[in-house]
Each structure stands twice: as structure tokens, then as C-alpha cells.
């Protein structure tokens, strides 16, 4: 591969506002770091507060998941009809 990326830096023509390129990684990285912190804080910390932090950190990815699902199922009712 060339050192210069062949890809055009400007995102290809958006059709609507929602088609803009979005930052892909902030959320997964944040959730990943929280998970890593949660896994390690209970393992390395021996005090109650580290355990509580671990529980909190590991709950957040689950809470975010449920929130996204909740949003999808409550705010945008399925409009497709009759198709599988």
C-alpha cells in the first residue's frame, strides 16, 4: 500500500444529514476501557470501593446496550408491514 492513503479524505457525498460520516470509535473505545477498568479494579484493588467501582464500570456497557435497545424499540416502531 502507498504511504498516502488512496481514499479521499472528504466523505463521499452525503444524501441526507444522517449519512454524514460519524466518529466510529469513541463509544466502543469508551465501553472497552470501562470494561477493562472494571475487570482490573476488582482484581487489583482489595478494598470495597474498588469492588464498587468495578461493578459500576462493568454495568455501564450493559446499561448502554439496554438503553440503545429501548430507544430502538420504543421510539421507532417498526413500520415495515408483512415482510419477513
Amino acid at each position: 500500500m502507498n504511504a498516502v492513503s488512496p481514499e479521499i479524505p472528504v466523505p463521499s457525498q452525503p444524501v441526507s444529514a444522517s449519512r454524514h460520516a460519524v466518529a466510529v470509535w469513541p463509544w466502543p473505545i469508551a465501553l472497552g476501557l470501562l470494561t477493562a477498568f472494571g475487570l482490573l479494579s476488582a482484581l487489583l484493588g482489595q478494598h470495597g470501593v474498588w469492588l464498587a467501582l468495578s461493578w459500576a464500570a462493568l454495568s455501564i456497557p450493559l446499561i448502554v446496550t439496554v438503553a440503545c435497545l429501548f430507544k430502538a424499540w420504543c421510539r421507532t416502531p417498526s413500520v415495515k408491514g408483512g415482510q419477513s
Binding site: 454524514h20 466502543p28 440503545c68 430502538a72 424499540w73 415495515k80
Partner: peptide, 18 residues
């Protein structure tokens, strides 16, 4: 990384194909 370029994190599209 490739797929989510145009979708905000966590969007679950329910108004299109299942």
C-alpha cells in the same frame, strides 16, 4: 469500523429490512 462509518453508535434500524 467499516460498517459504522455512517451510523451513529447504537442505532438499531427497525424501519427497514429485518
Amino acid at each position: 469500523g467499516r460498517f459504522m462509518k455512517r451510523l451513529p453508535f447504537g442505532s438499531v434500524r427497525r424501519d427497514r429490512a429485518s
